[in-house]
């Protein structure tokens, strides 16, 4: 099988801090990681390659340093890394991003052949939009299978696939046609440790870098800030509530604090105590 996996290099959101005075993001020194949701697609791709043979190509758009994430993915066992990088892509929103990635996928398909599956992350941990995968599927005419918890059956020869999909009130069992764009649900698998030879190969691998022109993008008005219909007008920290929390002094030992806290809760909302007494029976 030929499988493509789209990944994104993201700042480790747990480590982002906001400057207390200027209210701007302090990016310096924040380590970057592969978006954790992308790894479920990468592992699923590697499992399919284990079963059917073939190749797994990882693709990303980003600044030149994003090649580090591709190299990391090679270390897990992917065969090839492709980076689309160009200053014209700066400021891309999800629509401009799906445009650029669709062109990258088409260019890669010219060299390697059309993939049967394109995996994308369910969403990213920095933007959380879940829009780029569907955007790519729409642009390339791929069957769209999001929130997939398991691939039950797949027949690359016939081009058929059956998946379990996490819907709002249950699990849908869907059958569809390849090529498909799939986003895997978190927890559906666990990324493997790369073999020693994968890690060594990754360290020395050449990451292919293409710019906009190299993937055949001629209309730059579809890229970056210009190609983005959404405009960020304001970034701000939320206002604190006009009154800060009433603080219960934590003196006189934990039990006294607990009792004081309960008194304060019921003093503010006497009805709550009645509700609790009548509702929480059986203790």
């Amino acid at each position: 099988m030929r499988i493509f996996v789209c990944i994104k290099q993201v700042p480790d959101s747990a480590q982002i801090r906001v400057h207390p005075v200027t209210n701007t993001i302090m990016r310096q020194g924040v380590p970057t990681i592969i978006n954790p949701y992308d790894l479920f697609g990468l592992e699923e791709a590697l499992r399919l390659r284990d079963r059917f043979g073939g190749t797994v190509t990882v693709l990303t758009m980003g600044p030149p340093m994003a090649s580090e994430s591709l190299r990391k993915a090679l270390g897990y066992g992917a065969d090839r890394g492709l980076l689309l990088t160009d200053r014209f892509f700066a400021g891309s929103d999800t629509l401009a991003t799906s445009y650029a990635l669709a062109r990258l996928i088409e260019k890669a398909a010219e060299e390697e052949g059309m993939p049967q599956i394109v995996f994308c992350g369910k969403q990213t941990i920095d933007g959380d939009t879940a829009q780029v995968g569907p955007g790519i599927a729409q642009r390339l005419g791929l069957s769209q299978l999001t929130y997939v918890s398991a691939i039950d059956e797949i027949d690359p020869e016939k081009g058929s696939i059956t998946v379990r999909r996490r819907a709002d009130h249950g699990v849908q069992v869907l059958t569809s046609r390849l090529p498909a764009m799939i986003t895997m649900l978190e927890g559906s698998n666990h990324i493997r440790r790369g073999t020693q030879s994968d890690v060594l190969r990754a360290a020395q691998a050449k990451i292919t870098q293409w710019n906009a022109a190299a993937v055949g993008i001629t209309d730059l008005s579809l890229c970056g800030l210009r190609g983005s219909p959404t405009v960020v007008k304001r970034v701000f920290a939320p206002a604190a509530r006009s009154e800060k929390a009433d603080m219960i002094p934590a003196t006189g030992g934990g039990s006294a604090t607990a009792a004081a806290l309960i008194d304060a809760i019921f003093a503010r909302q006497p009805a709550l105590e009645e509700d609790l007494i009548s509702a929480a029976g059986g203790y």
Binding site: V18, V232, A237
Partner: peptide, 10 residues
């Protein structure tokens, strides 16, 4: 935005 550390208006 930014993993929930700021708000933005779009």
């Amino acid at each position: 935005t930014f993993g929930g550390s700021l708000l933005c208006t779009i």
